[in-house]
Amino acid sequence: MRLQYSPEIRIILIPCTGRVDILHLLKAFEGGADAVFVAGCLEGECHYLTGNIQARKRVAKLKKDFEQMGLEPERLEMFNLSAAEGARFAAIAQEMAERAYKLGPSPVKPEQRKAWLAAQAQASAG
C-alpha cells in the first residue's frame, strides 16, 4: 500500500493492548513523547478475549487524571482497528502527529514548551 504517515511516530510492539500498563503510558510522556496512542483490536474481536477492554479502561482513567496533572487529555488516545485496516492506521498515526504539533511540546518538557509558546506568540503577533 506504501501509505505515508509522519516519521515522528514510534511504534512499540506488545502482544495485546491488555499488556499496556498505565506506567508505560506515563513513562512515555516522561521520556518526552508529546502524544501517545494505543492501537488495539476491534472490541469483541480481541484475540485474548478481553485485553482491549482492559486497555480502554486504563486509557480512559489516565485521560481523566491528565487534567489534574496539567496535561491535555487529547495527547492520549486509544483506537480500535483491525489488522486489515492499514489505511486507517496511517490516518490515525497522521492525526495523532498533527495533534502533537497543534498542542506543541508537552508540559513535561517546560523549557521546550516555553520556547514553543514564545514562538507561537511571536508568529501570531508578527
Binding site: I14, P15, C16, D21, G51
Partner: peptide
C-alpha cells in the same frame, strides 16, 4: 496465552511477561 493482562493488572508488580517485561 501470553496476553499480559494479568501483568498490567497486578498491583504488586509480581508478574512479568517474558519478552515483554516492564
Amino acid at each position: 496465552q501470553g496476553c499480559g493482562v494479568c501483568v498490567s493488572e497486578c498491583p504488586g508488580k509480581a508478574i512479568q511477561l517474558k519478552h515483554f517485561t516492564d
